[in-house]
Write a protein that binds this DNA or RNA. Structure first.
Lengths: 137, 137
DNA sequence: CCAATACACTTGCATAATGCAAGTGTCTAT
DNA sequence: ATAGACACTTGCATTATGCAAGTGTATTGG
């Protein structure tokens, strides 16, 4: 019984990648997480000001796609800190290519934060960046 | 008089790149053009089968963004052959990053055509690929 | 000459995604 | 007790997506 993978459009790696991150917001969330942001509020306050309902939706989708993970950093009002999985960090290369293209071909644009320049495969030391409340209670 | 560039979201190169190619179809069109396709019909017949109205829209947008150019290859019913500008060809690096990520992280996906592996900056010899009717009349 | 077919698009309309604004629930500060 | 702040949800208006069908200009066959 050969279980067929029902690719929505084709088996092309580009098409399937775009089915996951092919929109105007997903990669910006990944960018912010690569830059060390972790909470909903930090993500909302990025310069592009993503609408809150879209952020909630993208966090769900990206988690479903295995690109980010969430760990509660506080109880009662349970609040989650979002972090990139290895699959998500690997998107750094895509972001890097986009930054380079944008800076070369869209006048006036710039790199807001150079954290991306780690040439990929920088296995994120998840243990060193412990989840921590924004303000120690 | 300092003419302000009214970036729609921010000055971030990633955000502005996504404002141009941040959707599910634009980069697939660029992929096909990189693979040598030139006419509307060739683009429609790609495995993803882009809806015709969306293809027409994307060709307009990509041309407005300076990513593709169009030259008529036949008169009376004027028909255009679409080709990448240097700005458009430079997106090959982005596509390459997407292919690599997809193949590594989305099981079952593959590279449909390796033409992308030219490590960028392969200045397209526009003079050598003359516009030509699909069938010589 | 007339009908049939093909290519390159357009147009109409239904469905889905996007985005603004306002609301909800839980804790913190005064 | 009242006023925020944070992390989301919910409601709707606008925009994008996608299927199907139509248009205009050839070419081909009888």
């Amino acid at each position: 019984m050969t279980t067929v993978k029902p690719f929505s459009r084709s088996a092309c790696a580009i098409a399937n990648s775009l089915d996951i991150v092919g929109d105007k917001w997903s990669l910006l969330v990944v960018r912010d997480l690569l830059h060390g942001k972790r909470t909903y509020g930090e993500l909302v306050n990025s310069p592009e000001h993503i609408p809150t309902n879209i952020l909630a939706d993208r966090l769900k989708r990206l988690e479903a796609a295995g690109i980010i993970g969430s760990t509660p950093y506080q109880q009662h009002p349970v609040r989650y800190a979002y972090t990139l999985t290895p699959k998500g960090s690997a998107l750094g290369d895509v972001l890097l290519a986009l930054v380079r293209w944008g800076k070369q071909h869209i006048p006036g644009t710039l790199t807001l934060n150079q954290d991306l320049a780690h040439t990929s495969s920088a296995a994120s030391p998840a243990s060193s960046r412990r989840v921590r409340a924004r303000r120690p209670v």
